[in-house]
Amino acid sequence: MHNLTTLTALGGADARVDVFDHITIAENDGLALASVAARMGQEAACQAHLRTLLGAVPEVGRAVLHDPEAGFWMGPDQWMVGAPRATHEMLADQLKDHFGETASITEQSGAWVCFDVTGPAMPDMSERLCNIPIREMAAGDVRRSVIHQLGCFVIRRDAPDHIRILGPRASAQTLHHALITAAQSTA
């Protein structure tokens, strides 16, 4: 077993948490991610595999918040699947085994930084960040949007005051700064 250690997207040994009165912004360093894209002509078979994996196929603009694997729709015939890194470090390989020739799997664990934003001021804060209609979104709704010029996925989680933001990992510090700034504006 190798002994290389990881850094979080923000460059720390441990995930960072910022707590304000009405907002908590927590870096989530525990996600393994991989994209699943159906092969041409294999769409139905791919969806069947998704169903066995997640319990359902994430519809357009939706996530299936399932344990341990969860997934959301990224584009036509394309989904992102996530799972705890602790148990799914080799998620892409596991998915390749699961989907076989029905889908193209690409490891995405390193491509994203993930923040969990919770608290009663979350909707106010979202309104200062991006154009998603946060107050109309239900649990499991997913929007790709732009936060401080960065393309991000915003996932409304089960708790009504909780969103998960996936942003480009190389810009983790910029995104974090934007979140902190918005929290200070509103919290």
Partner: peptide, 14 residues
């Protein structure tokens, strides 16, 4: 009227 190509770059990449 014009048929135009638009790329949903900050969306689903359609």
């Amino acid at each position: 009227w014009h048929d135009e190509l638009w790329f949903h770059e900050q969306g689903d990449r359609s």
